[in-house]
Design a protein around this nucleic acid. Structure first.
Length: 245
RNA sequence: ACCUCAUAUG
């Protein structure tokens, strides 16, 4: 079943999910039973092609085929619906999920937060963040990053920095993406000194600057006319084994 | 073997 599932995934990517269904038939003919992973792969294939109704139908039919959908099955469809902006259908899926006794995972909430932030619904996104905690899911950096990004986009750098402090105080480790988001905004706003300060501190949270980090900082410094310090950073990045582009 | 992939520079 693993062999066939891998092949079905590759077929989805190269020839589409409809073609992959033929391979599903073949595996069953040969006496090999697909499992939930096999079906998840197919549902994901349909979603990636925008064939959401096909994906939804397959999910709905699973129990009668003798396969119980799991949280990943639902997350896959949820992501597809969000990408298509079908928020109502996404809500419906969440309630179906609850009804089926399938508990949301961190990824479930992250998909929702990311979507809400993309469409600028900051308050709703924060609502989901709070709800996941109540429901026993611990937010991770993927939960916080889109919210920080939206704060930055809306010119609320203060709230973004607050959010960073909050995640750290709750024991959630920021990633370099978190810092790149903040550094970009600091540099754009001309607050390069503060950016430098943050750059020097991100190592304390287990993060390491990457190429994007340096390009952002160097841009910020040169914009301020501080070419000397920009050149120092160039040396610094090469010392760390990073190749300038 | 399956779901989140988010951040720049130009």
């Amino acid at each position: 079943v693993v062999t066939y599932s891998i092949l079905i995934e590759a077929t989805c990517e190269e020839n589409g999910a409809d073609q992959a269904l033929k391979l599903l038939d073949e595996m069953m003919t040969r006496g090999c039973s697909p499992n939930v992973v096999t079906y998840n792969i197919l549902i994901n294939g349909f979603c990636k092609e925008g064939k959401l109704d096909e994906a939804a139908k397959l999910l709905k039919d699973l129990p009668s085929i003798g396969c119980q959908p799991n949280v990943i099955t639902h997350n896959i469809l949820l992501q597809g619906l969000c990408n298509a902006g079908r928020w109502e259908d996404a809500q419906k899926l969440l309630s179906d999920m609850a009804e089926a006794g399938c508990s949301p995972s961190v990824a479930t909430y992250n998909i929702l937060i990311h979507y809400l932030c993309q469409i600028g619904r900051l308050e709703q996104a924060i609502g989901v963040l709070k709800e996941m905690v109540v429901r026993g899911c611990t937010p991770d950096a993927t939960s916080y990053n889109p919210i920080i990004h939206l704060f930055c986009k809306e010119g609320r750098l203060d709230r973004a920095m607050e959010c960073l402090d909050q995640m750290i105080s709750k024991g959630c480790l920021p990633t370099i993406v978190t810092y790149n988001t903040l550094l970009t905004t600091l540099c754009r706003d001309g607050k390069v000194d503060q950016a430098i300060h943050v750059l020097h501190r991100l190592g304390h949270q287990g993060c390491h600057p990457v190429l994007i980090t340096y390009n952002t900082m160097i841009k910020g410094l040169t914009k301020k006319g501080n070419t000397r310090q920009a050149l120092e950073l160039l040396d610094g990045m090469m010392e760390r084994g990073l190749t300038p582009d």
